[in-house]
Structures are given as C-alpha cells and as structure tokens.
C-alpha cells in the first residue's frame, strides 16, 4: 500500500523561486525547476553574498552542502547546494565567472563548512574566493603549478616533483 507523503507546504507555498525573483529582481537571472531540487537559481556573481545571507537568515537554508565548479572553457561556473531542514530539500545556486579572472566572494563567513569546499574548487579549478580566511590548496601540495580539473590540463607521463620536507 502506498501512503501519500504529507504535502511539503513550505516548499510549495509561497513559491521560493518567485519570492527570490521578487526580492532580487536585478540579481536573479534565471530560475528553473529541477527534479530532486527545490529549484535552480542563476545569479549575477556580485550578488552571491546578499542572496546567500537572505537565504540563510530568512529562508531557513542553514546548511551549505556543497560548493563546486564546472569548467566551460570560456567561463567557469560555481555551483552551491544549500540544504534546508524545514523544507527538506536542496536549492541550487549557480553563477558564471569569466575564465580570464575567475573570482567570486567567499561564503565561508556565512557557512564555515564552505571553507574546505572553496579550497577544493580553488585547488582543482583555479577559482579564487575573495575574502576567504585561508585559501590554500587542499589536495595538492603547495607549489603545484596546475589546476588539474581544467580542460586545458593535459595528462602526461608522470615526472617526479621536487619534494621538500619541513626542515629543509
């Protein structure tokens, strides 16, 4: 017997995407409904901090589940997944920064858990996060010269790197 799930009232009414479009008419470029998500919102890169603060403080998105990146060659996309316990769902934020100078404001001040996610995106995709408390490489050693998840990175026959121990 299939029991109907209780209606997720918060997720449906009022419509979160419509509220966001109304609240940030200049900054929300595009909203789409996605299966499995509360919605997908494309933002202007400059607007990430006020939108995130609004979502955290007034729309119950208390948890930043993921910060990732995509290399689209001309631009680089930064993707945020925010989780709300009250709405029981993820909201996806997306923004595009130019590949020549990819940088965006850090959200580590709003969600401390975003700290390492942003370090990972910097390490592998070369996206700089302004005002990040500690933007070092996460997986690769300091001094590594590539951001290896970029399309321009070519796999090569491995060459030994110079390894320095701490006392050297």
């Amino acid at each position: 017997m299939v029991t109907a799930l209780p209606p997720n009232t918060l997720a449906e009414t009022p419509d979160l995407l419509a509220v966001l479009r109304e609240r940030f008419p200049q900054d929300v470029l595009e909203t789409t409904r996605r299966p499995g998500l509360l919605g997908r919102v494309v933002l202007r890169p400059e607007a990430i901090l006020p939108v995130c603060r609004y979502l955290r403080d007034e729309q119950t998105f208390a948890h930043c589940a993921m910060v990732g990146g995509v290399d689209w060659k001309e631009t680089r996309e930064v993707v945020y997944h925010l989780w709300s316990d009250e709405r029981k769902g993820y909201l996806e934020l997306s923004l595009r920064v130019p590949a020549e100078d990819p940088h965006v404001e850090s959200v580590a001040g709003l969600w401390p858990g975003a700290n390492w996610h942003e370090r990972e995106a910097w390490d592998l995709l070369g996206i700089r996060f302004d005002h990040h408390p500690d933007l070092r490489r996460l997986f690769l050693p300091e001094g590594y010269e590539f951001h290896p998840l970029l399309k321009t990175f070519e796999l090569h026959e491995p060459e030994p790197l110079e390894v320095k121990t701490r006392h050297e």
Partner: peptide, 9 residues
C-alpha cells in the same frame, strides 16, 4: 605528492 614529504621525513 601531498604526503610525499611526510614519507621522506
């Protein structure tokens, strides 16, 4: 490579 210098140490 990240753990290499610890191995050498």
């Amino acid at each position: 490579w990240k753990v290499a210098h610890k191995l050498i140490t």
